[in-house]
Each structure stands twice: as structure tokens, then as C-alpha cells.
Amino acid sequence: MEDTSKAMPVPKRSLGAWGLIAVPYFWLLVFFLAPFFIVFKISLSQIAIAIPPYIPTFDLSEGWSAFKDNLAMLSFDNYVWLTEDDLYWKSYLSSVQIAGVSTFLTLLLGYPIAYGMARSPKEWRPTLLMLIILPFWTSFLIRVYAWIGILKNEGLLNQLLLSLGLIGEPLTILNTNTAVYIGIVYSYLPFLVLPLYASLEKLDISLLEAAEDLGCPPWRAFWQITVPLSLPGVIAGCFLVFIPAVGEFVIPDLLGGSNTLMIGKTLWVEFFANRDWPVSSAVAVILLLLLVIPIVLFQNQQQKMAEKDA
């Protein structure tokens, strides 16, 4: 978006045009940007048995000197605490690892689906596309919940495997990291398939024909032509899975076990169970910093693609 704006002239605006900008801008400043500063401020506060459960609270009516006293009470203690207790950095690491593994698995499963869709007869494609999007419209919570009944010890998967005689005793899948992987792959599959399908569908079949015509066997044409040209879709899809998966709460909470560490869950517990608002704020700030890099990378990549299309 920014790229095209550089070439745009700066138009003279009427009052109405300014209003058009101001209303959504103001809303986002108040309800999206401002809260982050509050989160940051509270991450520098201390936990207290009070309402709200932290100090200082900055009551401006108390005057300037009180304000200065309050300012002096802010400290980076919570961040120091995050480095001292290994629960936090283990949660961060484990989140990144779980999200990374899940993204890879999603790609492994999603690529053949997107490829199959892009190579299917033209009249099937809208239907297949709708079938990919449809689960996206159904509740996330329900889709995660559906797996509990399948994965638990006396669940449907174990019943099936036992009756087929493939296993002697039930597998423990629910409440392990495996269940979390399955949950993430299942929930985020459409996010990966959609951009990937878009880039595979754009691929001109005659390129593959040209490659074969020049003596390249189909499997090598796939690796040398199809895969490189679908790379933008792969990257976009992987970011769309990885970024939200890092901060995921519902999946590790419902499918994961007590030793499944994910930062979203840690934050939730810190906030709701321990009522330690300052520490959970600090966790949120660090999580945000962690995600800034992939988010910026993602935005840049999207922008490059947009420029290419234009």
C-alpha cells in the first residue's frame, strides 16, 4: 500500500475527506495503539492487593509531586524476573518450536492439497475453494473441541486402531504436544492452502510443457519450475500459520498437557489464575517484540508481491 502512495499526489482535502480519515484513525489510536502503552506502563508496575491489582495507578488529581513519586516506582523488575524464572523463557522457546514444527507439518499437508486444487478441472475449483474456506467460518473453538473426542484415550481414534488390531493398548495423544501439533495443523490449514493455491493457480501450465519439451522430466520440472514459482505463496502461508500459532492459547489449553508450555497459555494463567497483571503485561510486551520481526518480514514480503503484481 505504501508503495503506491509514494507516487500519489497529495490531494487537497475537504472537511468530509478529513473526517473520513479521522474517525477510523481515532478509533484505532484509542482502542488499538493506546492500550499497548498502558500494557507497557503496567509491565513496569508492581503487583498489589488492590483494585486494580497493581501500583502505582497514576491518579492525576493527586498533583505533580505524586505523579513524580509514582514515576519513580516504575521499574524493570518484572523483566528481570522473566529472565530469572526459567518458566518464561522456556515458554517462549517452546512456543516458537511448537509453532515452527506445526507450520512445517501444515506445509507438508497443505502443499499437496493446494496443488491438487490448482490442477483440478476448472469447474471443480470454486467448489473446492469453498470447501477450504467453509471450516474457517465455523467456530475455532468447536473445531478444536471436536478433536478431544477423537484423540482421548477411550476416543474414536484409539477405538478404531484397537479394533483394527494395529495397537495393543490405547495411545496417549490427548494432553501431549502431538495433540497440539494436530490441533494447530487442523485449525490453520486453510490459512496456508489459500495463498498457496492462489500462487499455484496463477502458474502457467505452458511453462511446465516448455520444461518437458526441453527435456526435463515431470518430477524435476516440479522442483525446478513449480516449487520456485509457488514460493511467494509458501512464504505467505507459512507466516499466516506461524505468527498466530506462536501466541495460541485455546489449542494448547484444550489439547495440550500440563507440560505443554506455550506463551499464550502462560500469559493466561498469569493473568486469570495468579492475577499478576504486571508480569502478564511484561510477558505480552516480550511476546510482541518476539513477533515484530516475523510480522515486519511478512509485511515486506506482501508489499514486494503487490509491487510485482502492479
Binding site: 499497548f36 501466541g247 495460541e248 499464550g264
Partner: peptide, 8 residues
């Protein structure tokens, strides 16, 4: 992540 949006 939703946890951040919610908390903030």
C-alpha cells in the same frame, strides 16, 4: 495474538 489484544 488474541491474548495480547485481549489483555491490552
Amino acid at each position: 495474538p488474541e491474548v495480547i489484544l485481549g489483555l491490552s
